[in-house]
Design a protein around this nucleic acid. Structure first.
Lengths: 341, 341
DNA sequence: CGCTAAAGGTATAGCGCTAAACCTAGCATG
DNA sequence: CATGCTAGGTTTAGCGCTATACCTTTAGCG
């Protein structure tokens, strides 16, 4: 049989409530002698509190949900970028004695279900579109602390944490423009009207304005964030857009696909076409030449998410709203001046 | 206030127990009319059962722990290989209405704590050493279903699921030997005496025996499974082992590091030195030339883990013990015959 | 001396659910 | 007619914990 609070209490000769208080650190009204005695017995008997009983009685689970979109039969698409976030989230939460529950979300209303079923104290939304986050209402969310990674949604129920995508893209585009490129492609997933991609798109445009470069030089393409789609886009560029001398992509994996596609089509990187990625994942340095890319501080992003989450949970106040971290360009080997004709 | 079973019961004019039975699919002794009425009300009121109350009353949480070693201040080291596993685990478990709780383990006895605190129905051990798994006793584990990924531990409390590492390494080594290589390096983490690495090491040796090649030709080195360590090893090989014409590594990331190190030292891959990786991750095709590597069916591995887990949970029987899946060699561009002198 | 306040607890009443045992009406059966 | 069986439920008694309110004893103080 399980060792319970009652057992400890009986052995220590106090009421269960006192043991509960000691274990939960509410020691103001307990004598030091009693505290020591209880802790010794707890240790000895290997008592571990029942989390379910706690959640039930205290109406708080100390679980944070990690909610990730799951497309039907597919398993979760966890990008390398996401993995790093998960690792840091777990560590930070564990430090504060919270637990992480991973849950794939197929339909958006499963969010509410997940939150209520487990009495989650909070949740991190990872990889949702802004439109989906916009849809969250007070009825679904309740009094749960919510943080949305890489979101620009204005929904006050889910605080956004993101790096400065506008600036990141602007720096990348400026870099290409300064190198002398004028016909530049923008390749990213098809959500130009909202969120992260929108920001990067706008940053990209801004650089053109700032450089006084004609916007007609830009080729904007919707390309899925996969290696395969990037490769196909590389082929397409080579075949149908010979005037393009540089490509900005919204993800390293996409950039690497594009590189491969271009090379297969007989073009050199950066000799004929320059390529810029986004995220500065490890893989950026695995390709030859090494990928020029925009770096964001992913561990910091995750740490901020936890801070925001716990801020909402412990103080009842709703903290300062969305937080935006920096982004900067890492120049490596895939960018150079355009070929002189 | 939360909508509870009682509320539903009151509205439907039945006892809470009947509602409970209907919701849990134990409908044998309930009339169809009552079932329909209850389900309609549940739907209408948006009733979501409280998981904590359930766990407490039923002594079963429907949570599976995903336990991963966490080295102190570092965040979880989740390799790309691991990520894929996590995604599949989540999907398979969700299908069966189980949930996944991610937990970093710093000291081995935290496993017991995690299991008991949340009343876990089972757990997947990901990334532990065989020696650690060997140490798990019935007292720590209790009646919890345990599956250890990539383990060769004989501990009957934690069923191993792995691919055939012996054969994988044997195929890789045979490939190199058949190409004519005789001075071959084996590079892998320093756990030669146990588990996965042991199997691969033995498979590697076996290939030498089978080919009638002199074992003196082998150079066995302990190299951490990181890009940086691989790169350093590449340098070392070039400087101190010019006789070596091929390298077998226990991980793609390591192989990629070695490639980079060799190239930096002025050697060509595969012109001067052939390289073989392990896992066939996406990154294996990102490098130039593309990496020859040993592939394992990772989704299948995860699916088997879930099957084993649920088998233990639902039927009380302990299933058939460890399961080993296949492994096969993917020949790409990093292997060729040794240079003729 | 009477009163207050602090220290150090305890008692009560759930949290929301489920396992297990029990109940009852209605019908068939020998 | 006594009996058993079945369908369709209900009752009881917790699971292990915590929030809240309450109760003593002792010392301090004017």
């Amino acid at each position: 049989m399980r060792v319970t609070l009652k057992d400890i209490a009986a052995e220590a000769g106090v009421s269960p409530m006192t043991v509960s208080n000691v274990i939960n650190g509410k020691r103001a009204r307990v004598s030091q002698a009693t505290i020591d005695r209880i802790l010794r017995i707890v240790e000895q008997r290997g008592y571990v509190p029942s989390a379910s009983a706690r959640s039930l009685a205290a109406r708080s689970s100390r679980i944070i949900g990690l909610l990730v979109p799951a497309a039907g039969e597919d398993s979760l698409t966890i990008s390398p970028h996401t993995v790093e976030i998960i690792g840091v989230l777990e560590r930070e939460l564990r430090k504060h004695d919270y637990h992480l529950m991973l849950r794939g979300i197929e339909r958006i209303d499963e969010i509410a279900e997940a939150l209520r079923s487990w009495n989650l104290d909070g949740a991190v939304l990872l990889g949702f579109q802004d439109v989906e986050i916009d849809r969250l209402g007070p009825d679904t969310v309740g009094r749960v602390a919510l943080v949305a990674m890489d979101s620009y949604s204005e929904n006050p129920l889910a605080l956004g944490v993101r790096s400065d995508d506008f600036t990141g893209a602007r720096l990348a585009a400026r870099h290409l423009l300064e190198l002398g490129h004028r016909r530049i492609a923008f390749a990213g997933p098809a959500f130009f009207d909202t969120g992260v991609v929108r920001q990067r798109y706008e940053g990209f445009r801004r650089a053109f304005v700032e450089a006084g470069a004609p916007w007609e030089g830009a080729v904007v393409a919707a390309v899925e964030t996969t290696h395969a789609a990037g490769r196909a886009f590389g082929h397409l560029l080579a075949a149908e857009h010979p005037e393009v001398t540089a490509v900005f992509t919204t993800a390293d994996i996409l950039a690497i696909g594009v590189m491969e596609g271009l090379v297969e089509a007989g073009l050199a990187v950066p000799g004929d076409v320059s390529v810029v990625g986004y995220d500065d994942l490890d893989i950026a340095t695995f390709v030859t030449p090494k990928l020029t890319t925009v770096a964001q501080d992913i561990p910091a992003k995750a740490a901020v998410a936890v801070r925001l989450l716990l801020g909402q949970i412990t103080r009842e106040e709703h903290p300062d709203a969305a937080i935006t971290l920096g982004a900067n360009l890492i120049e490596r080997g895939t960018t150079a001046g355009p070929k002189l004709e």
